[in-house]
């Protein structure tokens, strides 16, 4: 038994125990309030990631230097990806790392490029604005927190990840199927028949059930991305042309 678990110890931990250990560095180990034996791993890492995410988000607000802001933002987004891993949404977490953090990378590059000149590196915010924003933020936060705590069902403690028998539930396959329009959790009877038939393509049964797949939104998003790509390329196109009228005026 020993050898087989030598490098695979963390299956009970939720997926990111090691990542968490690296990123969090075990910072939250020092909570003296609770008996140490009762500490659970999931919560520990949740705390670590949550603290990083929140603190870095606040740091984004407080920083003036664009590049530092982008750096804090990346840390915040990265920690959020960790939270997604902890919540069992591995695919979303990896996606967040790849697209969100990658997108921010481009932000950072732009920050560097646009602020190569000293005056734009830090555009200061007026103190009055800060105070005002602080008040608004506090009230907004209060409202949101009140809302979060108001629903009883949300306050129920979750499960320990270990409760699922040590197997991390694979989320990406059902997600991918949902995106092509098939719900694996769809109990509609049509599917059973198809299954019996043995050669169904699976997509027909989705509409029959109450829950729909996401094929249409998926397609819309892909078209949307294409449009955005074209639009962004157009907005940042390399050159602008004079109209022919202006040309003739210039010639005169």
């Amino acid at each position: 038994m020993m050898p087989s678990t030598l490098l695979g110890p963390a299956s009970l931990l939720g997926p990111t125990s090691l990542l968490g250990f690296v990123a969090g560095g075990g910072t939250a180990c020092g909570f003296a309030m609770v008996p140490l034996a009762a500490v659970n791993w999931h919560g520990l890492f949740f705390l670590a990631f949550a603290v990083v995410a929140c603190v870095m988000a606040v740091a984004v607000v407080l920083a003036d230097n664009v590049v530092r802001m982008a750096f804090y933002l990346v840390l915040s987004l990265g920690a959020t990806a960790g939270l997604f891993f902890l919540a069992g949404a591995e695919f979303v977490g990896a996606m967040q790392l790849m697209i969100y953090v990658g997108g921010t990378l481009v932000l950072l590059v732009f920050g560097v490029m646009l602020t190569a000149q000293a005056p734009f590196v830090s555009i200061k915010t007026a103190t009055g604005d800060r105070v005002l924003a602080g008040i608004v933020a506090a009230s907004l936060l209060a409202v949101l927190l009140q809302a979060a705590f108001s629903v009883h069902a949300w306050r129920e403690p979750g499960r320990f990840p270990g409760d699922t028998g040590g197997v991390v539930e694979p989320m990406s396959t059902p997600l991918g199927m949902a995106l092509v329009g098939v719900r694996v959790d769809d109990p509609s009877p049509g599917l059973a028949q198809e299954n019996g038939g043995g050669n169904g393509d699976g997509s027909g049964g989705a509409a029959a059930g109450g829950r729909s797949g996401y094929l249409l939104p998926f397609e819309i998003v892909s078209v949307h991305l294409l449009v955005v790509l074209v639009g962004a390329a157009y907005l940042a196109r390399a050159k602008r042309r004079r109209s022919s009228r202006e040309l003739s005026e210039a010639a005169r």
């Binding site: 000149q117 940042a236 196109r237 390399a238 050159k239 602008r240 042309r241 004079r242 210039a250």
Partner: peptide, 15 residues
């Protein structure tokens, strides 16, 4: 050399 092009949209600074 196209006369219709009046500017480069991405303005860049020399270094």
């Amino acid at each position: 050399d196209d006369q219709r092009i009046i500017e480069f949209d991405v303005r860049t600074d020399e270094m």
